[in-house]
Amino acid sequence: MSAKRLSNTAPETGAFFQRDLSIHPPAYAPGYKTSVLRSPRYAKLSLNNTLSEITGPVFGHDMLGELDNDMIHNFAGKGESAIGQRIIVHGHVLDERGKGVPGALVEVWQANAGGRYRHKNEGYLAPLDPNFGGCGRCISDENGYYVFRTIKPGAYPWPNNPNDWRPEHIHFSIFGSGFAQRLITQMYFEGDPLIPLCPILNTISDKAAIDRLIAPMDMENTIPMDARAYKFDIVLRGRRSTMFENRMEGN
C-alpha cells in the first residue's frame, strides 16, 4: 500500500474554480509587441475539469539540495557569494479558499544585481557576476510557507518601445496539486518607479491585480545587519468540494 493511502490528509480531488480572466492579461496585448504574433485569435474551448486537469505531479523535498533556495551561494565559488543587496523573499502559497498549499514546487529566476541574465540570448552591457547563476527552487511546507535568499535584481532595458525598462523583478513558476493550477508570474518590489511604466505589467488591466504582484518590504522579518525581507504571497486556483464525504475545512 502506498504512503498516500496511509496519510491522514485526504487528497484534493475537487474540480477547480473557474478562472477569473479579468485579473489576467489577455493573450493579445499590443503594448507588449511580442504578444501580437504569439496570441491565439480564436476563443478557447471551455473544458470542465476531468482527471487530466485535476491531477498533477508531486515533487518531494528529497529532490532538493541544501542550497537550492539560496541564490547567493548556489552558483558561487567556495567561500564566495553573489554581489548585490542581500534579501529574503518569503511568503505563503495559498489557494483561493485561503488555504495554504503544502508541497508546492516554487521555481524562481532573475537577473543579477546589474540587471544582466546569465543566458546565451542576453546581450545587455552590464557584466555577469561569476558567483550568480540566477535560479532557485523550494517546496512549500505543510502550511504553504516558502523562503528564498537572493540578491535584489537590477532593472534592465529591453527591446519593445525604444526606451523600455523592466522594473526589478523575480520570475516565479508554481505547481499546485493539480495541473490546472499551473502558474508563471513575476514579483515586483514596492516603491520601484518603473512599475507604472512597464508594458508587461500593463498587460493586466486591473490595478488591484497589479498591486498584488508587488512585494512589500517586511521589516519585521528583516535580519539585522544581514538581509532585508520582502513578503510575497501567491494565490493559486481553489477547488470545489464535489463530494460530501470529501468536504474539508475552509470550503
Partner: peptide, 12 residues
C-alpha cells in the same frame, strides 16, 4: 482570495 495574475515567462 483572488488568484495571482499570470505574467509572461519571458525570454530567459
Amino acid at each position: 482570495l483572488k488568484e495571482t495574475s499570470s505574467q509572461t515567462a519571458g525570454p530567459y
